[in-house]
Design a protein around this nucleic acid. Structure first.
Lengths: 337, 337
DNA sequence: GGTCGGGTGCAAATCGTTTTGCATGCTATT
DNA sequence: AATAGCATGCAAAACGATTTGCACCCGACC
């Protein structure tokens, strides 16, 4: 084993450059003017010694960790990795470390995950978990940690919100189906009380009402935002109903994939016997056969936006006002409708 | 604005409990015996005050950050989120924070990402990037940061390696095709110099040789581990060859999906005109039509294993010996072959 | 009865930064 | 020629934990 030299600290740099530690710190932070000659000298030494400030010491002093946590309800849902990539796009350049935390039940309760990241004193949290309760959010607020939520109801005291226009998106999908002449349009939604479910249902209802269609509660079922949920929902709809729907609108793409599984098993032709639509436009939507009509959810751009808003807040901007940013959706018509 | 009380520090706890800070620290760490009475008193105060040790102060003193970084080549490849979930399964319970870092080109050079996490002084790194050079790995080793690599060539001085048995997996796929009677079996691989490419090619070659088949260099093309790579590879193979292959083995599922895109465009029937196989068994493999024959890569279990090995190292176990752990693969035969 | 040793607790040094208050030398102004 | 003001640099006090060396008290042992 070769002996590894002790890591240089700021004092070592100061000594080697013949200045005080204060001066080195000022060169690093730029908080006080430093003459060009001194700066050059110090920077040369830093380079030569390979000095990197100790982040623990720094955050102990400044009370900032330069790290941000993303909390997602299911990291294996491809929507969230895309969000994470968007966050990273912005955060990496600013020197922030991004921690990604999966709060997927049953193994990991959201509250436990929230406590975990709060205990680590992250500077900010991007909360993408639709399972979050007011209590969870209040706990974050109480700790003083900056918060940006991805989706969810907008309330000033609960921080900023970034979301796609789900009401509009779902409205467009349903209108599209109505236009194509589908008569009995069913809806397989995600978790009943989750915010995205409610908001997507709202879009469905609005489009139906606008078209003068009656809303049949028999045609609306709530399951979970997963492939298994889609199987369950489709089974309920297609096996119990006396008169079958001729189109099924799904709360997200994963559900739609599950619905497709069922139609395949039942030997139904899509979109002949039944039209199916998804939501989010994850890659799988274009892979299945028939390819899914869906609504593109700009995941990466949402991630970028969350990051920028968090940085604004960390910089002290918008200190006394919460913001809600809504990103445009885009209807993608493919073969399934 | 309501006034938020200052966070209690260890001194506040000591004062409220009528003991010294040393004692409180010992209650927390258990490094010295503390009487039951004292312990109970201190724990009650901690609870009442909601005291949580400041992680920066702690790691400044202990030189441990209790955090681990995962570096992946493409976070939108669903294999990696599954690995991340596995890591989290193990790390969360131990109080470690997991940071996930996407080193996807062209925006983020791997070296830059490595520097970034090293600057943050993480305790350990799980490096899943097949683009890593010896230099990258040496830089990590030099910093003293514990390293576990996901895949890659095993070398004692470069830390532990966890990998699936890719040679065996690819061997099984190819043998399966040979058994089914396919005559001209082509191979669309990922990046030519990437380790997983080499190793998977090895499995292909071994199976061919075992069956007494000749290896035709014309039938082997290197692209990238992406859907676009599959399109490119299939186009090359199917449009240029005088005599077409009747089976295409792909370096991963994403490539296979791209190959499928091409067969669809050319109107080829799968597996009638052409058999196609993938590798990894990501969800998409079962979604496409026809569903892909592939090899199951136990991503989540790989993640868990990486985490455990890293924890071993951080605990000082296996200090003077590197380990390579190989996880079993499983051939999944579906419709495409 | 003196000594030994285990259990328990405390004071103080330490980790590596940032930041404040003050001192110095120089230039420019009057 | 005196002084105001600026640019520059330094010493020292935080930040909040962990850990070491030492002191004390007590019962047990010879």
């Amino acid at each position: 084993m070769t002996h590894v030299d002790r890591r240089p600290d700021i004092a070592a740099v100061a000594a080697a450059a013949g200045v005080s530690v204060t001066t080195v710190s000022h060169v690093l932070s730029g908080r006080r003017p430093v003459s060009d000659a001194t700066r050059a000298k110090v920077e040369a030494v830093i380079e030569r010694l390979g000095y990197r400030p100790n982040p623990s010491a720094r955050s102990l002093r400044t009370d900032r960790s330069e790290s941000v946590a993303l909390i997602v309800p299911d990291i294996t849902n491809p929507f969230y990795p895309a969000v994470a990539a968007g966050l990273q796009d912005v955060l990496l350049g600013q020197g922030y470390l991004l921690s990604v935390n999966d709060a997927a039940l049953p193994s990991r309760a959201l509250r436990e995950v929230v406590r975990h990241v709060l205990a680590r004193r992250v500077d900010g949290i991007v909360l993408a978990s639709y399972g979050a309760t007011d209590d969870d959010i209040a706990e974050i607020a109480r700790s003083g940690t900056k918060l940006v939520r991805l989706g969810g109801r907008f309330r000033a005291e609960f921080g900023d919100v970034v979301r796609a226009d789900d009401v509009g998106g779902m409205h467009d999908v349903v209108s599209h189906l109505i236009e194509r002449g589908y008569a009995r349009i069913a809806f397989v939604n995600g978790e009943r009380d989750a915010h995205p479910s409610r908001i997507r249902l709202e879009g469905y209802e609005r489009a139906m009402r606008e078209a003068g269609r009656e809303i049949d509660p028999e045609l609306i079922v709530s399951t979970t935002f997963t492939r298994a949920g889609g199987v369950e929902g489709a089974t309920t709809l297609l096996e119990r109903s006396t008169s079958r729907p001729d189109a099924i609108v799904c709360g997200n793409d994963l559900i739609a994939v599950g619905v497709l599984d069922v139609t395949r098993r039942l030997g139904l032709s899509v979109p002949g016997d039944l039209a199916i639509t998804g939501y989010d436009d994850i890659e799988a939507a274009s892979l299945v056969t028939p390819a899914l009509t869906t609504v593109h959810n700009p995941a990466r751009e949402i991630g970028r936006t969350c990051a920028r808003m968090l940085l604004d807040r960390l910089a002290g901007d918008y200190d006394d006002v919460a913001r809600e940013v809504v990103l445009a959706h885009r209807l993608i018509v493919r073969e399934s409708s």
